[in-house]
């Protein structure tokens, strides 16, 4: 049974008046993660949007202890925090990394790999808005095929890195994908993470109005379309057990997926695919990647 909204703690750990942009989906994710953790957490954050939001003068944006660390080093810093807590006899506080896609897919990948391999008892959350937003929307290796950024002016030529497979190769005790359009589902996954000592990894799909160029109120709609078009797959893996998420189950069948245009057309970063006319070839390439990801995920995990 999924948690009912009324059963979530009322206490807020993401404070009002912080520096997040209007429509920031990162706040949705942070808010629900911290409701699930209820304050017994040390959060480690590398350079990313959250590092600004949590701290911009004169306010402190989060009501929990936060260690803001260097860009390449979030998972390593968390490893140190965990080791020291263990030395102090603390086995209950969650050590959680909250890192963007740049700090996870790119510069932070080595540290993440090391922490997973050492079986560090921590939860690594990558909130993926598919771009370096903090510095003004440059491409990252999580940026999808054909998306415009300020360093890929005519659309990115490469497909995104399938990070989940890299992480899965480290065999974390618990791994999941989530989407801010389904916050109750995300809450449940954080609750589940608390039950599994050892390395845990969560990958959250997170629409960004600034970088993706859509009206600020459309974030939830776009997040849902990502699932309904089959672009984003909701799944969990507890040890060897793979669970295809209830939101994604029906979209395993390509026939049941909504046309990808519904998802792409809402975002300015893909606008060049429709001007002056629909770029059938490039959109077909995006569709092919979507199917490819389904095939790889299902082939690997089932």
């Amino acid at each position: 049974m999924m948690v009912a909204t009324k059963d979530m703690p009322l206490k807020e750990y993401v404070l009002k008046g912080n520096a997040a942009c209007a429509g920031c989906q990162d706040m949705v994710a942070l808010r629900h993660a911290h409701k699930a953790l209820e304050g017994d957490v040390i959060q480690v954050v590398p350079a990313c949007c959250t590092s600004v939001v949590q701290s911009l003068w004169p306010k402190s944006g989060l009501a929990i202890p936060v260690l803001n660390t260097a860009f390449p080093a979030a998972a390593a810093t968390a490893s140190g925090v965990r080791a020291a807590l263990k030395a102090k006899g603390n086995d209950h506080t969650m050590v959680m990394v909250w890192a963007g896609d740049g700090g996870t897919f790119d510069i932070g990948l080595q540290a993440l790999s090391g922490a997973l391999e050492r079986r560090t008892d921590f939860l690594y959350i990558c909130y993926n808005n598919q771009v370096y937003s903090n510095t003004g929307t440059q491409r990252s290796s999580a940026t999808p095929l054909h998306a415009k950024t300020t360093t890929t002016w005519f659309g990115k030529a490469e497909t995104e890195k399938m990070l989940d497979l890299i992480v899965a190769a480290h065999e974390p005790v618990y791994q999941f994908t989530a989407n801010t359009s389904y916050p109750r589902d995300f809450y449940d996954k954080i609750m589940k993470a608390k039950e599994h000592p050892g390395p845990k990894f969560g990958h959250i799909f997170l629409p960004c109005p600034q970088a993706w160029n859509y009206p600020v109120e459309k974030g939830v709609e776009i997040g849902k379309l990502a699932v309904e078009t089959g672009y984003w797959i909701q799944w969990e893996r507890i040890g060897e057990e793979f669970i295809l998420g209830r939101q994604s189950k029906r979209f395993l069948d390509p026939e049941k997926r909504k046309p990808i245009d519904e998802y792409l057309k809402m975002q300015g970063r893909f606008s060049h695919l429709y001007k002056p006319t629909r770029d059938d070839k490039k959109i077909a390439e995006i569709e092919a990647f979507i199917q490819h990801r389904w095939d790889v995920v299902m082939r690997t995990f089932t």
Binding site: F105, D106, L109, Y132, T135, T151
Partner: peptide
Amino acid sequence: PITPATEIAEWMSIRMPQVGGAYVQYED
């Protein structure tokens, strides 16, 4: 990418292809 030097990379990502050069963004 890094503030306050990002504009150099952004500008080069447009200009380099125009002059037959290459701009490549790395992972760190």
